[in-house]
Each structure stands twice: as structure tokens, then as C-alpha cells.
């Protein structure tokens, strides 16, 4: 019964340790690494410009999570209370793009939002704008890409927690004099929190680490941590610095995972919130 443990050790724990140890080393000119202990890489990672990339990535991830939530929650809410048949149809339609390759989906967004894309053509046909609007290669395009990519990951967990709500609780609340709005705030919303938390984790962390969407849909100013790491590894050949940035990202994600498990233990939640 040891193979899974062995596998995790060799292909997961050890590689992470290598990255962490590289982060304290120095890059040689030929791309090699000399293993000495230095904090130089961290000093560099936390200095003005690179720190601002870190903050920017955080900002993008937070805004993306928020925007995705704003679109996803109403969808999940509608879906949870509609007819069984419609539920199945909507589920199918939401999962459909999910099954299409991620890069293809990003590519399709590029086409859709491009200056000769359908949206711009439609806007110009309707006379909403004279010249094509710039919707990709800027922050807007990046957000559209992120939301598009993340939407199913936010809708589905929220839906599944809303769908599990015992409807008699909502009836009880209405029965006790609460209006629909009050019932939503006091009963529905609190019970969808486990799904919401899962959705936030599933959106926030992958967004933080993504480098393809800023590259394809973002503009010159939308560099994120992922782009920085990729560039350090594959172009600048400065693995120690890339490792330092990666380690910072790992630490941030670990903090999130610990908080997630602490506040919402996936194994317990079902018992405490739904009997």
C-alpha cells in the first residue's frame, strides 16, 4: 500500500523542496545553478517592481473572483429552483464549454472580442460605436477571459449547495413572517456559503497562477505572477529567481488551503449544515 505515498514523495514533495532550495541559490550565466545560501532572490522578488506584480496579480484575482461571483450566483440560484428538466438542460450547457479545451475557449474569446469580432460588428451595426472598441489586449479582455474560464467552477459548487437546501427551511422562514428578501438573506445565503467558499477557492487560486490568459487576452501592462515565473524559467534562465517567486506563490496558496480546511472542512460541512 505504499506506492501512492512513494509517488507523492518523489513527484510532489521532492520537487517542491527542490524549488524551495533553488530559491536560496544563485543563477550562473550558463543557466546552471550554484547552491549557496542567499536571500538575494527574495530581496529581488519583494522589491518595488516585482512586488507590484504580486499585488497586481492579487488584485486581478480578487476582482475576477468577485465578478465571477456576481454572474455565477444568480445563475446558480435560478438553476437550483427551476424545474428538474430545465436544471438538466442548464447543467449540460454550462458543462459543455468546460469539456472544450481551455486554450480553444480563450482563442474563441479572442475572435469574439477582436476589433473585427462579432461584438464589435454588432455594436457598429447598431450604431452604438463608430470605430471598433478595443476589448482584447487590455485589462477588460483579460477579465472577460478569466470570467469565461472560471464561470462553471463558481456556478457548480454554489448550485450544489443551494440545491441541497431543505426547502422546508425556506418555507419555515416565510411562514414565520420573513419576506422573500429576508428569507434569502437569513436562510438561503448562509446555506450557500460552503459552495461559495469552494467556488472562491476554485476561482481565486487558479486565477492567481494563470499565465495564458494575460498573455493572450491581456495587454502589455497585465503581467501576472505566472508570466513572471514562466519568463524566468523559459527565457531569462534565472531559475533561482523564478523559484523564489514560485515559493512566494506556494506560501500564499498554502495559507489559503489551511484557512479553507480550517473554516470549511470538506468532510464535515455536510453534517453541520444539512441534516
Amino acid at each position: 500500500m505504499a506506492p501512492p505515498v512513494f509517488w507523492l514523495l518523489v513527484f510532489f514533495i521532492v520537487p517542491l523542496l527542490i524549488v524551495v532550495s533553488y530559491s536560496f541559490s544563485i543563477a550562473k550565466t550558463d543557466g546552471g545553478i550554484s547552491l549557496v545560501f542567499t536571500l538575494k532572490n527574495y530581496g529581488q522578488a519583494l522589491e518595488g517592481m516585482y512586488l507590484s506584480v504580486l499585488f497586481k496579480s492579487f488584485g486581478y484575482a480578487i476582482v475576477t473572483t468577485l465578478l465571477t461571483f456576481l454572474l455565477a450566483y444568480p445563475m446558480a440560484y435560478y438553476m437550483a429552483f427551476t424545474t428538474q428538466r430545465q436544471k438538466m438542460i442548464i447543467m449540460f450547457l454550462i458543462i459543455l464549454p468546460f469539456w472544450t479545451n481551455f486554450l480553444i475557449r480563450m482563442f474563441s474569446i479572442m475572435i469574439l472580442l477582436g476589433e473585427n469580432g462579432l461584438i464589435n460588428k454588432a455594436f457598429m451595426f447598431l450604431g452604438l460605436t463608430d470605430s471598433p472598441l478595443r476589448m482584447i489586449n487590455n485589462t477588460f479582455g483579460m477579465y472577460v477571459g478569466f470570467i469565461y474560464w472560471n464561470l462553471p467552477f463558481m456556478v457548480l459548487p454554489i448550485f450544489s449547495s443551494l440545491d441541497r437546501i431543505d426547502v422546508s427551511l425556506l418555507e419555515a422562514s416565510l411562514d414565520l413572517g420573513a419576506s422573500q428578501r429576508q428569507t434569502f438573506m437569513k436562510v438561503t445565503l448562509p446555506y450557500s456559503i460552503p459552495g461559495l467558499v469552494a467556488g472562491i477557492v476554485f476561482v481565486f487560486i487558479p486565477t492567481l497562477g494563470n499565465f495564458v490568459i494575460p498573455e493572450f487576452l491581456g495587454g502589455t501592462q497585465n503581467t501576472m505572477i505566472g508570466n513572471l515565473i514562466t519568463a524566468q524559467y523559459l527565457q531569462a534562465q534565472n531559475w533561482p529567481f523564478g523559484s523564489a517567486i514560485s515559493t512566494v506563490l506556494i506560501v500564499i496558496v498554502m495559507i489559503f488551503i489551511v484557512l479553507y480546511i480550517r473554516f470549511y472542512d470538506p468532510t464535515k460541512s455536510k453534517n453541520t449544515l444539512n441534516f
Binding site: 454572474l71 455565477a72 444568480p74 445563475m75 440560484y77 435560478y78 438553476m79 437550483a80 429552483f81 427551476t82 442548464i90 450547457l93 454550462i94 459543455l96 464549454p97 472544450t100 480553444i104 475557449r105 482563442f107 474563441s108 474569446i109 475572435i111 469574439l112 462579432l118 469565461y148 464561470l151 462553471p152 456556478v155 426547502v167 425556506l170 418555507e171 416565510l174 422573500q180
Partner: peptide, 27 residues
Amino acid sequence: LGIGQSKWLKFITWFGIAFLLLPLIIL
């Protein structure tokens, strides 16, 4: 009780679905 079935919720839902599917249709 019409929980979660208001018109604007319905609109947002189908807007979201259109958003998800439109790029694929164009491809």
C-alpha cells in the same frame, strides 16, 4: 412560491449561458 424565478434572474442565467456558448458557436 416562485423562489429564485424572477425575470431578471432568468435573464442573467440565460445571458451567462449565451456568454459561455457564443464563442463556441462562432468557432
